[in-house]
C-alpha cells in the first residue's frame, strides 16, 4: 500500500537492503569511472578541490567530462554551460520517471530534502529503482534508494580523489579499462528493463546514438532520446504492449 507510512524499523530495513545493493558492481563501476574522471580533470589543469566538487555537485559523468574537456580547451562560460546542459539533459526524463516511484509526496519530507533526493539521482541510482520495486514495499523505495545512492556517492568521490593522484602511478591501459567499465555496465543495466517499450527504446537509442554522432556531434543524445523514445512508445501503444 503506497499510502501507508513506514515505521522506524521498516524504514531502516529498506535502507539496509539499498546499502547492501550499493556495494558490489554499482560502487565498483562508479569508483572506477570516477578514477577516469579524476585523471581527466587533472590533465585539464583543475585542482583537486574543484575536481572533487565537480563530482559532488554536478553528479553526472558525461557532463563532468564535457566540463573538464572544455575547460582545458579554454572554452567560454556559455559553451561550457550549453555542452554540460546537453550532456546531462537525461536528468529531466530520469527525474520525471524516477521520483514518482519514491512517493515523495506521501513521505512528506520537505522541499530541501526532496531537492537533495533529486540531486542524487543519476544513471546508476535511477536504473536501480526498477530493481528496488521488487525488493521492498512501495513506500520502502525511498529509503532503499537513499541507502543505495549514499554508498555509490561515497565510492564515486573516493574514486575521483584516487584517480586524481593515481594517474601517474597506474599505467594508461589500466585507466583505460577503468573508464570503459561504466558505459558497459549501464548499457547492460538499461537493456534489462522490465517494460517491453523501454527495452525497445534502449535498442533504438543504442542504434541512433552512435549512428547520428558523426553528423550531429553531442546533439546525437537528443536524436537518440527523442527519436528512439517516441518510436518505441508509439509501437508499444499501437501493438498493445504498453506498460501496465
Amino acid at each position: 500500500m503506497s499510502d501507508v507510512t513506514l515505521n522506524h524499523a521498516e524504514w531502516r530495513a529498506a535502507r539496509r537492503v539499498g546499502l547492501i545493493d550499493g556495494f558490489g558492481v554499482p560502487s565498483f563501476a562508479l569508483f572506477t569511472t570516477m578514477i577516469g574522471f579524476g585523471a581527466i580533470a587533472r590533465e585539464a589543469g583543475l585542482d583537486i578541490y574543484v575536481t572533487v566538487a565537480t563530482t559532488m555537485f554536478v553528479w553526472g559523468m558525461p557532463g563532468q567530462v564535457a566540463f573538464a574537456d572544455l575547460y582545458a580547451a579554454g572554452a567560454s562560460g556559455l559553451v561550457i554551460f550549453t555542452a554540460v546542459a546537453l550532456a546531462n539533459m537525461r536528468m529531466l526524463p530520469m527525474t520525471v520517471s524516477g521520483l514518482p516511484m519514491m512517493h515523495l509526496k506521501a513521505h512528506k519530507r520537505g522541499l530541501f530534502r526532496n531537492i537533495v533526493t533529486a540531486h542524487l539521482l543519476a544513471i546508476t541510482g535511477w536504473a536501480q529503482l526498477t530493481a528496488a520495486r521488487n525488493k521492498v514495499p512501495p513506500m520502502g523505495v525511498l529509503p532503499y534508494y537513499l541507502g543505495f545512492v549514499s554508498v555509490v556517492y561515497v565510492a564515486a568521490n573516493l574514486g575521483t580523489v584516487f584517480g586524481y593522484y593515481l594517474s601517474d602511478i597506474v599505467p594508461d591501459p589500466v585507466i583505460r579499462v577503468a573508464v570503459y567499465v561504466t558505459p558497459l555496465y549501464i548499457v547492460l543495466l538499461v537493456s534489462s528493463a522490465r517494460v517491453w517499450a523501454n527495452r525497445l527504446a534502449v535498442l533504438l537509442g543504442a542504434i541512433l546514438g552512435p549512428l547520428t554522432y558523426p553528423l550531429l556531434g553531442d546533439w546525437c543524445i537528443l536524436a537518440a532520446g527523442l527519436g528512439g523514445g517516441t518510436v518505441a512508445v508509439v509501437i508499444a501503444h499501437k501493438t498493445g504492449r504498453a506498460p501496465e
Binding site: 577516469g36 585523471a39 581527466i40 558525461p62 567530462v65 574537456d69 550532456a87 539533459m89 537525461r90 526524463p93 530520469m94 520525471v96 520517471s97 544513471i123 535511477w126 536504473a127 594508461d172 585507466i175 583505460r176 573508464v179 570503459y180 558505459p183 558497459l184 549501464i186 548499457v187 538499461v190 537493456s191 528493463a193 517494460v195 517499450a197 523501454n198 527495452r199 527504446a201 534502449v202 535498442l203 533504438l204 537509442g205 543504442a206 541512433l208 546514438g209 552512435p210 554522432y213 558523426p214 546525437c220 543524445i221 537528443l222 536524436a223 537518440a224 532520446g225 527523442l226 527519436g227 528512439g228 523514445g229 517516441t230 518505441a232 512508445v233 508499444a236 501503444h237 504498453a242 506498460p243
Partner: peptide, 26 residues
C-alpha cells in the same frame, strides 16, 4: 510512458556512443 522511453533511449544512445566514439582515455 513517453518520458520513460525517452530516458531509456537517451541513456542507451549516450552510453553506446561513448563506447563507439569515446572522447576520453578509452
Amino acid at each position: 510512458d513517453w518520458v520513460n522511453t525517452v530516458a531509456y533511449a537517451m541513456v542507451a544512445g549516450l552510453m553506446v556512443r561513448i563506447i563507439f566514439f569515446p572522447t576520453n582515455v578509452t
